[in-house]
Computed example of a mutant assay.
Amino acid sequence: MIATSTWQHTFTNYQNIDNINLSGQQHLEIIQPLATNRIRLQLNNLYDETPLEISKLEIYAHPDTKKVVTLHGLKHFSIEPRLVEWSDWIDISLPAQGKLIIDLFSPNKTVHTAGLTISNDLIQTTQTYPNIPKYFFGISGIQVMADQVYKKIAFFGDSLTNQGNFSAPLAVDLENNYNIMTANYGISGNRLLRPGHSTSQWSESFGEAGFTRFDHMLADYQPNLVIFMEGINDLLHPGTGSPMDELPSAAAIVNAVRILKAKCREHEIKFVPMTITPAEGSIDGDIAGWNPKKEALRQEINQELLKLPHVIDLDDLVSHNVRLKPQFDCGDHVHFSANGGKIIAKYIKDQLLRKKML
């Protein structure tokens, strides 16, 4: 039997959010593509300075089949600050293409190490309103025992990836219909060339520069294919919280993408970059996030990206006159709508099929 990751979601440092666990209980429902009899959970407290106390952690596919998750044989345990650990293996019968339900009980009201989703397709919390950010903590990965090796795809990027409006429905499709496991390595606010450095209250959560955290993803997840989309925040942030002199050249962005592609090639990983989508009309506070100089940079970057093998021209699908088409726009002129995300997911899948990558 082989330990196989069936769900992975990058956590980051939400230092500005208090009382994320005000009720003391968290309920998650996560799609599980594989049938299994053994499972373990990744327990994450990477960015907090106090232990994450877990008084009880239960998993089940049906309320009559609840199993208690333990760590080192203990039902009540804590995850020390700055650590990520795997739980003990738990014997439980789970069907393919079903939901794993996780109930986590903790006295910690404020937890800064957390993940974010907007889509309800892959992971659900008790809040299911489509446009509301849903934060969750404690559990950042799931592994099961499987009888074979499965191919793995990593979605790497910023909020457009992290929110899940395209990546989550695509993940469910790939997992259920192609037996390909997926992981979400998107971080909202993440830049390719620079770490979080902003007057924004969210600056800490923007994370390490994508260029360097890409190495961690390759080492930790070891994907067979990476779907990559970053660069929009390198253009958006300067002048809207970050210094304007941090606006990069098009060559800097393109060279960074080429280096990441070369790293993938060294490990025989297919690298699928996507063009940068538009942000004309975006507003951060009272400040316009976009201007003609930024748009010219985006166009120059995309022209160079289109020269790379395996590139997917997402910009061509979602843009009209340098703006997001209404069916793809969630309303802020940057992020994708839920329905638009599903169109994008199908488009990416069709492109992967055309390129014979599935």
Rank of each mutant, 00 (worst) to 15 (best):
residue 277 T to H: 12
residue 110 T to N: 06
residue 177 N to E: 06
residue 88 D to T: 05
residue 64 D to M: 03
residue 6 T to D: 00
residue 288 A to E: 11
residue 307 K to M: 11
residue 127 Q to S: 14
residue 231 G to Y: 14
residue 349 K to V: 02
residue 293 K to H: 13
residue 353 L to S: 14
residue 209 A to H: 12
residue 68 V to S: 06
residue 127 Q to P: 00
residue 324 L to Q: 06
residue 247 L to T: 10
residue 317 L to T: 09
residue 133 P to F: 13
residue 300 E to V: 08
residue 46 L to E: 12
residue 118 I to G: 03
residue 303 Q to G: 03
residue 279 A to C: 11
residue 180 I to N: 01
residue 13 N to V: 04
residue 133 P to A: 10
residue 105 F to C: 03
residue 114 A to S: 15
residue 37 N to D: 07
residue 341 G to P: 00
residue 104 L to A: 02
residue 200 S to Y: 09
residue 121 D to V: 08
residue 31 I to T: 13
residue 328 F to V: 02
residue 333 H to Q: 07
residue 314 L to F: 14
residue 286 D to V: 03
residue 180 I to Q: 01
residue 335 H to K: 13
residue 244 M to C: 04
residue 159 S to W: 10
residue 219 A to N: 13
residue 349 K to M: 07
residue 72 H to P: 01
residue 140 S to R: 12
residue 226 V to Q: 08
residue 140 S to F: 09
residue 57 L to F: 02
residue 237 H to I: 10
residue 312 I to Y: 07
residue 285 G to E: 04
residue 330 C to A: 08
residue 288 A to V: 05
residue 247 L to F: 07
residue 290 W to G: 03
residue 17 I to F: 14
residue 102 I to D: 00
residue 131 N to V: 15
residue 41 L to N: 09
residue 209 A to W: 06
residue 121 D to R: 12
residue 308 L to D: 07
residue 44 N to F: 05
residue 12 T to D: 02
residue 68 V to M: 03
residue 163 Q to I: 05
residue 5 S to E: 15
residue 94 L to Q: 03
residue 43 L to G: 01
residue 115 G to Y: 15
residue 149 V to A: 08
residue 149 V to R: 15
residue 279 A to Y: 11
residue 250 A to S: 07
residue 120 N to G: 09
residue 182 T to P: 03
residue 262 A to L: 05
residue 232 I to T: 11
residue 235 L to N: 04
residue 342 K to F: 01
residue 246 E to Q: 13
residue 323 R to S: 14
residue 198 S to N: 13
residue 138 G to R: 15
residue 240 T to I: 11
residue 40 R to P: 01
residue 138 G to Y: 13
residue 42 Q to P: 01
residue 282 S to D: 02
residue 57 L to D: 00
residue 138 G to W: 08
residue 159 S to A: 15
residue 81 P to Q: 12
residue 344 I to T: 02
residue 192 L to T: 08
residue 104 L to Y: 05
residue 175 E to K: 15
residue 327 Q to M: 14
residue 223 P to D: 02
residue 66 K to Y: 08
residue 220 D to K: 15
residue 142 I to M: 05
residue 348 I to Y: 08
residue 243 P to L: 04
residue 249 S to R: 12
residue 16 N to I: 06
residue 284 D to Y: 15
residue 85 E to W: 07
residue 242 S to D: 10
residue 299 Q to N: 08
residue 63 P to G: 12
residue 161 T to I: 10
residue 319 S to F: 07
residue 75 K to M: 02
residue 80 E to Q: 15
residue 56 K to D: 02
residue 133 P to R: 15
residue 297 L to D: 04
residue 85 E to C: 06
residue 28 L to Q: 06
residue 337 S to M: 10
residue 184 N to G: 01
residue 303 Q to Y: 09
residue 274 M to W: 09
residue 12 T to C: 06
residue 210 G to A: 11
residue 215 D to L: 12
residue 339 N to T: 12
residue 333 H to L: 05
residue 41 L to K: 09
residue 279 A to E: 03
